[in-house]
Amino acid sequence: MLKAENISKSFIDRSSGKSFRLLQDVSLEIAPGEAVALMGGSGSGKSTLARLLLRLLPCDTGKIYFRGTDITKLSGKELAGFRHAVQFISQRPESFLDPRKKLGYSLREALEVFSLPYAEEQALEMLDLVKLNAKLLERYPHQVSGGEIQRICLVRALLLEPELLILDEPTSMLDISVQAQILHLLKDIRAQKQIAYLFISHDRLISEWLCDRVVRIEQGLIRS
C-alpha cells in the first residue's frame, strides 16, 4: 500500500554549516492491514522517515508510492486522496489542536478540510471506541489530560476512515498507566478497523506486542 524506495535525505548542520546525510537508500513497504514497527535510537532518522512518507518533507532521492502510484512529486490537491487515507498521530498531539477552540470544533475541522459532513452518530461511536465521554467535546485542550488529548486525536483521525496510521512514539509523553491504555486501544482499533500501522518506537517489547514485524533503523540505514 505505502512503499518507500531508496529514500535519502540530507540536512545542513547549523553549527558547522556542513551537510550530513541522515537517511541513505532507505526502502520500506507496508501492506494493507499490516502493522510495522520502526525502531531506532534518538537521531536515527525514524521521525524524519515518517515525515518523508507523509510528504511533509521532500526526499533528496528515491520514490514514494501509495497504492502503486508514485506520489513523490505530487503536491496540493494532487495529494488530497493520500492525505485523507494516511493519518498521522504525533507524540505531541496537542500541537494538532487549536487551544482557543473546544475539542468538538477540532473533530469537525478535520472533516471540513476534506469537505466531508460531520456525522454526530459516527463521532459518538468513535468516542465510545476510545472510551471517552461525549461531554469532553465541550472542553478546551488545556482542560483535559494528555491521555485524553491523544484519544481525541485518534478519534479525529478515525473519523476520516484512514487506511494507514503513522504513529510517531504516540505514548512517549504519557505516564506508564496511560501508555498501557492507549496501546491496548491501538491494538483493539486495528483489530476492529483493519487499519495498517507504521508504529515508530524505541521499545522492542511494545513493538513486538503490537506489530506484525519490526524493522530497525541505524545510522540512516534500515536493518531487518
Rank of each mutant, 00 (worst) to 15 (best):
I200Y: 02
A119M: 07
Q150R: 00
V155Y: 03
L103F: 01
F199E: 01
H84M: 12
E94Q: 12
T69L: 11
L54Q: 05
V215H: 08
H84S: 14
P141D: 04
L129H: 04
P99F: 03
R108G: 15
V214T: 07
I71D: 13
D25C: 08
K18C: 12
E161N: 15
F88N: 11
Y65K: 11
R92S: 05
S16Y: 09
L154N: 03
Q181P: 01
A196D: 09
F20N: 12
F66Y: 15
Q91G: 07
Q143I: 02
V130P: 02
E78H: 06
G104D: 05
R83P: 08
R213H: 08
E29G: 05
K131L: 09
N6S: 14
S16Q: 10
D98Y: 03
L165T: 07
F11R: 15
D168S: 10
M126L: 15
L28Y: 07
R223M: 12
Q87N: 09
E218N: 14
G17E: 09
A134G: 07
D60R: 13
I30E: 03
R67G: 09
I176S: 05
L205P: 07
E148N: 00
V26D: 02
L129F: 01
G104M: 05
D60P: 13
Q194G: 14
E169F: 05
R67S: 15
L111W: 03
F20W: 11
F11L: 15
Q87H: 06
F20G: 15
S44V: 06
E148C: 00
Q87E: 07
R21G: 08
